[in-house]
């Protein structure tokens, strides 16, 4: 049975939502329910509803603040799922420090194709934590 993943896209360009919706609709082995937030405040609201498997956050949103401000803000909601920083341009030494700001990965928007989103979904679900990480041990 195909599992449906709930993914939140935070991007001030709605065209990106339309592009990714089209791209992700062709996945062979998973289904994606892509939810859209145009700004960080709306993203925080939606996170309050819960149930997201993955967040894709545009590096720079309309107010000009980049992931170094926005990802910690999303983490403060208590969300402990994966967050990816996406951007048209990943140049800049600060992108190498994405983990310091609570992000799990960075990826250019061009790279975010069907193979890559499938890899991300697998990485954060079925591959998950190794068996020897059982909390009870």
């Amino acid at each position: 049975m195909t599992k449906t993943f709930r993914v939140l896209l935070v991007d001030d360009e709605e065209i990106e939502y339309k592009l990714l919706t089209k791209r992700f609709s062709k996945l062979a082995h998973s289904a994606i329910d892509l939810v859209y937030a145009a700004d960080i405040n709306r993203a925080v609201e939606l996170l309050g509803e819960g149930g997201f498997d993955l967040l894709l956050v545009d590096n720079r949103l309309a107010r000009g603040e980049d992931f170094r401000h926005n990802v910690p803000r999303l983490r403060k909601t208590g969300y402990v799922g994966p967050i990816g920083v996406i951007s048209s341009d990943l140049a800049g030494a600060h992108f190498d420090r994405f983990e310091d700001y609570g992000a799990d990965f960075r990826m250019s928007k061009d790279e975010l194709d069907q193979r890559s989103i499938q890899f991300l979904l697998d990485e954060y679900s079925s591959r998950g934590a190794p068996k020897d990480l059982d909390e009870d041990l």
Binding site: P72, R75, K76, V80, G81, P82, I83, E99, G102, D104, Y124, G128, A129, P130, L133
Partner: peptide, 9 residues
């Protein structure tokens, strides 16, 4: 630590 559970694991 304000990171993901996956990062901790």
């Amino acid at each position: 630590l304000e990171v993901s559970e996956h990062t901790i694991n």
